[in-house]
């Protein structure tokens, strides 16, 4: 029982980070109908920036600063490479983001160097005892960040003018334009927000273990999450992210014991198995909108 609970806590902790990443994918998808393969690079860039800033200004200030900086980077990317591609097939734009991802990661890797970089988080691997369970503090921090960012996003989309404008332009760009919504700026804003959220997620991916040149792969685990949740549902992304975290955590704990023939580290690829299973049953994810097709 204790094992099960600890597994659940770890799953929800990492699941929160996956959920954050998934939210960043979904925000971009809703604004420009593109799955941004640049998110891994933006996440890594955020984590590295935090690792450099945490020394001088402290971790708590470094995270928002990095989020703003990477947000600006996301804004710049949208302006320079995504904006000229409006009206072109989404596949082409997705491949452009793939190219951006590769290019940015080369630059970021230079700043990481060959070793693991500590992001300077205050938690490390220390634990706190909750009802007799030794829960790692970083899992609590991850969950709290998801709650804070999620609540902030909810309030933003529900109550602010810009949130309303963004929802309008994702619903129907032309109609939104007619109503005076600057759709282009909203897309840029979406990219900036998504990049910022990815940077925050990056800081928490690095919490406890630090980041190295291969950490970017973690961001791709958000892809199963958004597919499971449906590409255009933020709530679905959160559920999908937590689900992916739980599945991965349970495989990490129990697969070696019950399914040893799947090999070591199967937990790392288990989200993709989950992805295949979900898509075979529900092609548009659990919460996605079914596309209505016409010729």
């Amino acid at each position: 029982m204790r094992d099960v609970l600890l597994t659940v806590v770890r799953g929800l902790g990492f699941g929160s980070v996956y959920a954050l990443l998934a939210v960043s994918f979904v925000i971009i998808y809703k604004s420009s109908k593109v799955v941004s393969f640049a998110q891994p690079a933006l996440m890594l860039a955020g984590a590295v920036l935090v690792s450099y800033l945490a020394g001088p200004v402290g971790f708590y200030l470094a995270v928002p600063l990095a989020a703003v900086a990477i947000g600006m980077l996301g804004w710049g990317l949208e302006r320079t490479t995504i904006r000229p591609m409006i009206g072109r097939p989404v596949f082409v734009v997705a491949i452009i983001t793939l190219g951006l991802d590769i290019a940015i990661r080369v630059v970021v890797n230079v700043f990481i160097g060959p070793d693991v970089r500590n992001v300077g988080d205050p938690w490390g691997l220390s634990t706190v005892s909750i009802a007799g369970l030794p829960v790692q503090e970083r899992y609590i921090a991850m969950a709290v960040v998801l709650l804070v960012v999620g609540a902030g996003l909810f309030a933003f989309f529900r109550y602010s003018r810009y949130g309303l404008a963004m929802r309008a332009s994702s619903l129907d760009q032309e109609t939104a334009l007619v109503q005076g919504v600057p759709v282009g700026s909203m897309t840029a804003l979406a990219w900036a927000m998504a990049a910022g959220i990815a940077a925050v997620a990056g800081a928490f991916v690095g919490a406890g273990g630090g980041v190295d040149q291969s950490t970017w792969v973690i961001a791709l685990k958000a892809l199963p999450a958004i597919i499971i949740g449906g590409l255009d549902s933020i709530g679905g992304a959160v559920v999908g992210g937590l689900l992916v975290g739980l599945v991965e955590s349970f495989f990490a704990t129990y697969q070696g014991e019950y399914l040893p023939w799947l090999g070591q580290n199967f937990a790392l690829v288990s989200p993709y198995v989950l992805l295949l299973v979900v898509l075979l049953v529900r092609p548009y994810g659990l919460f996605g909108t079914r596309e209505v097709e016409r010729v």
């Binding site: 799955v35 892809l223 597919i227 790392l268 690829v269 992805l275 092609p283 548009y284």
Partner: peptide, 16 residues
């Protein structure tokens, strides 16, 4: 893009 992501998943499963 759903297909793109699934085929991406295949690469990771394959690597494993």
């Amino acid at each position: 893009l759903y297909l793109a992501i699934v085929t991406l998943g295949l690469v990771f499963l394959g690597t494993h």
